[in-house]
Structures are given as C-alpha cells and as structure tokens.
Design a protein around this nucleic acid. Structure first.
Lengths: 374, 374
DNA sequence: CTGAAAGCGCTTACAG
DNA sequence: CTGAAAGCGCTTACAG
C-alpha cells in the first residue's frame, strides 16, 4: 500500500515517460537545446543583461520551444529565497481584512511573490502557531495585523531574520514598520465632531473583549477628546464585545440604552457593530439621528447602506494591502535599510452620513437650563 | 551593490556563525547528535514505526535538543510533494467565499497542508493565470469555484496531473469532484414557496453579468418552477448585474420596479443584492413584504439583520471549505480512486424570514376577479 | 532495521 | 561573458 501511494522520483519519471503527456522540461533540456551550459541558461533567464544577446536569444527561444517553467522548489532550495510571503489576519469575515488581503495578494502576485494566508480568529496563541508554520515554510517575509502579539512571536521572527511589516496601525512600539491609519486620532476627530454637534453623553461599543489594539486606540481617542472638554466616560458606558459582529452591536446597544437612557452618542469601533446598533435602535423605535447618533469605523460596503447610512471613518484597506506588499518586498530585496525608513500614516477620512446629527434641541435646552439652575 | 544584496549560501552561513543566534539545525546535526545516519534520522522522523524504538527515541530527543524543523523546500524537492494546496476564489469580498476560505485553510492547516490563496475577480483569464502560477509553484492540489473555466485551465491542470476539486456547486459536467449545494434545486424550492404564497409576477436580480454558473443555475431553478405553473419570465424581468453588490441590488430593484410595477416577488441570486433591493424598496416607500416579497441567497450575516430580515437559502460555506479540504487531501494521498467516489450535495436550507409574505389580499382578489371576468 | 550514496532541479562562486 | 562543479537539505531505492 505504502509503496503504491508514494511514488519515488524514479517511478514517477518512468510513468511520465510511458504516458503520452511529455515530461516537464528542465533547465537541463533548455541548455542542451540552446547548446549552452546549465549556468548560462540559468543566467540568460534570471539576469539576461549579463549574457551576450545572441546567446540569450537562443536560450529564450529554447524556453519557448520546451514551454519551460522553472521548478520553484529547486530554485528556492538553491537560492535560499522562496518568493513567498506569509500573512496572518484575525479573520476574513470582516470586509476590512478581506479587502486588505485581496489587495495584498494582487500586488504581491504582480511582483512575483506568492501569498500564504492564515487567520488567527483574534487568538494570539493561534497566531503564534501560524507564524511558526510560515517561518518553517521559509516565507521571505511576513505581514501581520496590529502591534500586539504572543510573547514568543516576535523573538521567533527575529531569530529567523525574516522581514516583517504590520498593518492597520500606523506605529509600532516594537519597531515594526507599520502601514495603516492613526486609529486614536481618527476617533479623536470623530469625537470632536460629535462634541460640536452638542453631544455630551457618550457610550462606546468596542470589540476590546479580545486583545485588539486598534479597538483600544479607537476607544482612547474618544476618551482623550471628551476629556479635553472635561467629560469622563464611566466604565459602565463601555460595552466590550468579544467579536465585532452585527449581533454584538445589537446587544450592546440594547444594554447600554437600557442602562443609560440619557446617552445621545454611541460610538462603535467597527461598522459591523454600528450596523447592529442602528438596527436595534430602529427596532426599539428610537430615531437615528434625531434621538441618538451612532457612528461606525471602517467604512465597509454596508456602512453606506443602512438606514440611515453610517457616519464612519474610512480605513483604506486596499491601500494598506498594496503598500504593505511594496514595503515588505522593499525590505526583502533592499535589505535592512528599508526597514527603518519612516512611513506616513494613511489618511483616515471622516465620512459624515445620516446616522449622526445635533443633539435634539429641547432636550439640550432643558439640560442646560437645569445645569444653570443647579 | 548586487553582491551586497544577494547573499550566497556561503556568506549567509558565515554571517550566521559570526552572529550570536545559532544557525538553524539541519537533519545532519540531528543525525550526528543521535549517532545515526542521515537516512535513519529521516526515517525516525517521517516513518517512526519502521525504526527500532531505542534509536527512534535517540533521534527524537536530538530533534528536541536542537529544536530541529525540517526545511520544507528541501523536503519538497526531494520528495516531489510540497504539502501545499492552491485555491482560487472569485473574491474575498463576498462573505460566502471569505467563510469558505477560512474553513478550508483551517482544515488544511490541521492536516499539515499550507494554503496558497488567490482571487480572480470573476475573470476567467485571470483565474487561468493564477492556476498556472500555482501549478508552477508545485501545489499538491487545487480548489476552484464553480464549473466554468477558461478553455485552457482544465487541460493545464490535467497535464500536471494535479488533484482538483471544485466548490459551491454539487456536480461538474467536466467530471471534477464537486462539493456544494444544488443551486438550481434551491431556487426551485424558493420559487415553489413563493408560488404557494400566491405570487405570480416575478422578477429576478441575478449576477450573471459575468460568467457565473451558480447564479445561472439559481435563475434556471426559478424558471423551471414557475414554468411548471405555466408562468413565463420575460427577459426584461431579469436584471443582470456584473457584480453582486448592494449597490447593484438597489439599482436593479429601482429599474425593475419602475418598468414592472406589477411584480410582487423579487428573487435575488445573492444576499448582498437582496439587501440592496430591500433598502431601495424602503427608500421608495414600498413595504416589504406587504407590497413586494424579496428573497436572497447565501444566508450571510447581514441577511438576518436587514429590516425586514431576508428570506434566503443557506449556503453552508464553512462546511464546503472543510469538506473540500478533506476530499482533496483524500485524492492527494489516496490516489485517483478517491476522485470518483460520489459526493452528496450539501443541504441548502430554505430560511424563511420577514422579507416574504403572501400576495396582498385585495390585489390578488382583484386580479382573480378580473381574470374570471375576462 | 540501518547506512552509504545518488538524486531532486536549480544557483552561483570560482576559474577561465 | 561562459563553463565545470559544488552545493542547497532533504528522501529513498539499494545493498547489507
């Protein structure tokens, strides 16, 4: 049984010879047809400029004739480079990562690299295992998300000397080149916008249930901004969802609203949760934005399609993916110098749509009056 | 410059030796430490049962000591197997594929295979290029979507003798093992359900703008079912969207509704388009399901969150991904026999929610009366 | 059950 | 600019 299943090279070759389909051409065949050495054939293909034009033509012609494509494994083994890049994202279920991965793959492919993909479900231990697997695989570089990892992950990557970039954040305390937006500043601006609309009573729906530095930064941005106005956010006004799902947003809104009916602005750290919050508000007969304002983050497709459409922050996922690819390849091919070149944070535009509005007039007035009377 | 960038093996090794981090252990080191030959060390690791227990222990201990992990490229080159599987999906932007890919990757990883991922944006030519790249890469197997490919794709795969499965369909005219649902039957059932609610005036929002056999099968299922009741669907009642986006669903609904105000049932071939249709209906003040019924397909997360939530068909994406992995590995490791074993279509449950209802009483009565009078 | 040796298909210093 | 040869790190028939 075993012997039938596992075909040793010789058997495989014999079988191929016996069958009608021609065996795959090797560099050796190209060299022979072009009447040059293996070395020259290799050079004509990989560094054409250092080969005499006439000979180069002969080799390239032979390549055509034989429909030759190099064996990537052999190439990898002898060159020490796999032309492979690994990426570990929390999940593909969030469009923000799906879009980023698409762009990453597209750019990587265009530049001759293959993407190895994995997802951690926001679990650092799982992420560590994925990273280790990719390192064993021999990836030339690694793309991660955020700036929080299992304790062993970074030392392992450094031990392998594997180039690394991280994404969706614009800075790393660990010195990793980071391609993304300034999450904190983005919600700071969002909060300022809400403050200008007259909001003073806030609540946050955050997916900080699992370690998530992006969500934490977004929360901090809000906290900063309102603190500047002397407003504090009691801990019970923050709902920590484990996953950024629509259902979690629904539940969060229901609970926060029940506990704090006076809140006028609900800031969500992802669009998915904001979609749930808007849906739940509607179900409860609460008008958006007349009664409460709700904001999202990400600007995924559905954000523009809820009723009312979401005010949110645009995360340029495709741009992040493409730039991460370019940057990583720069480090892989250019050496460590490329690692330290600074990267500007990407723009995270505030997208104002219908889910936010000024605090309802009468209420606001009433409150001010009361405050004055006190 | 060139010489500084590209580190030849010797240089690389010298550098590693000079630096504090120990060079990565090779099988040779393991063998030496265990005082056995390379061959025995290899066997103790890969086929432990054929090695004497005492020696096996020695080797395994050495592996621990040296923290040895095999070089996958070397292993691939000498064994002819990469333990790598390639998948090409239309897009990751649709949750149905994102979820399937997640499950595929998880199962593949659990069984020792690495996923190479690519996306075609529904473009057969692009898909062909991705396939070719993966084949050159040496993938042990391939996972595709649907049953419609560029003319050269299948011959190329067969020439490489690379195991292949396809997904999201339950049968292939090309003899490819298929893991998925019966799309045609699913909409047939959906149509029967709508017929029972009294609907006679249908329109379809399909993403058949680009070649998409799943969408076509879904359309055909409806056509079959209503034909059985003697109802025909004029071509102008079918909107062919190029991409299954929410925006496309919106536009499709607007146009179809304007051109055919008498239509009571809008069947969409994906949830995303149905979400758009529901949103547009609401915007126009058309009540769902009182005035029109709208159905989706896929049962992605948002399907349950629209207002009203969508009646749709559940596509078990995670199951498809996991089964595809198992099946493909079965073919890879078990040989061609595994290719022809039949696969039952997966269950595609009809999920009835709030976006569908009986045809409005008065209208239905009026119509029947009129018909009787005629 | 174990070992010596060939081989997987390339790349690349090294010497011309 | 070109060629002969060693080497990348494994696996596996082959012979004991």
């Amino acid at each position: 049984m075993d012997k039938t299943d596992k075909k040793p090279p010789s058997q495989r070759k014999a079988q191929a010879d016996a069958s009608p389909a021609p065996a795959r051409a090797k560099l050796e065949h190209v060299a022979r047809l072009a009447k040059v050495s293996l070395a020259t054939a290799s050079r004509a293909i990989n560094q054409p400029e250092i080969v005499r034009p006439e000979i180069r033509e002969r080799v390239l012609h032979a390549v055509e004739m034989l429909d030759y494509t190099p064996d990537r494994m052999a190439k990898a083994l002898s060159s020490g480079r796999t032309h492979t890049v690994g990426a570990v994202v929390p999940t593909l279920g969030n469009a923000i990562f799906a879009d980023g991965v698409e762009a990453l793959e597209a750019r990587l492919g265009a530049r001759g690299y293959t993407l190895i993909l994995s997802h951690s479900q926001y679990d650092p231990a799982r992420e560590f295992r994925q990273i280790r697997g990719m390192l064993e695989y021999g990836v030339d570089g690694l793309v991660l998300v955020g700036d929080t990892f299992a304790p062993d992950s970074l030392p392992l990557i450094r031990h392998h000397r594997t180039p690394l970039v991280t994404t969706y954040v614009c800075a790393s305390r660990q010195g990793i080149p980071a391609i993304g937006i300034d999450n904190r500043q983005a919600t700071h601006r969002m909060a300022r916008y809400l403050l200008e609309l007259g909001h003073r009573e806030f609540a946050v729906i955050a997916n900080t249930g699992l370690p998530n530095d992006r969500s934490q930064a977004r929360l901090d941005g809000l906290l900063d901004a309102i603190a500047e106005e002397g407003i504090r956010l009691p801990p019970d006004r923050i709902f920590e969802a484990p996953l950024p799902s629509i259902a979690a947003g629904r539940e969060a809104f229901r609970r926060l609203r029940a506990a704090h009916p006076g809140v006028t602005a609900f800031l969500c750290t992802t669009d998915a949760m904001a979609v749930g919050a808007v849906a739940e508000a509607r179900r409860e007969g609460i008008r958006v934005p007349e009664d409460v304002s709700i904001t999202g983050f990400d600007d995924v497709e559905i954000a523009a399609e809820t009723d009312p459409p979401l005010t949110t922050v645009k995360v340029p996922a495709a741009e992040i993916g493409a730039i991460a690819a370019d940057r990583l390849i720069g480090i892989i091919e250019g050496g460590p110098a490329a690692t330290i070149a600074p990267i500007a944070p990407l723009e995270a535009a505030l997208v104002v749509r219908g889910s936010t509005g000024p605090v309802a007039g009468p209420v606001a007035r009433k409150r001010r009056t009361r405050a004055a009377a006190a």
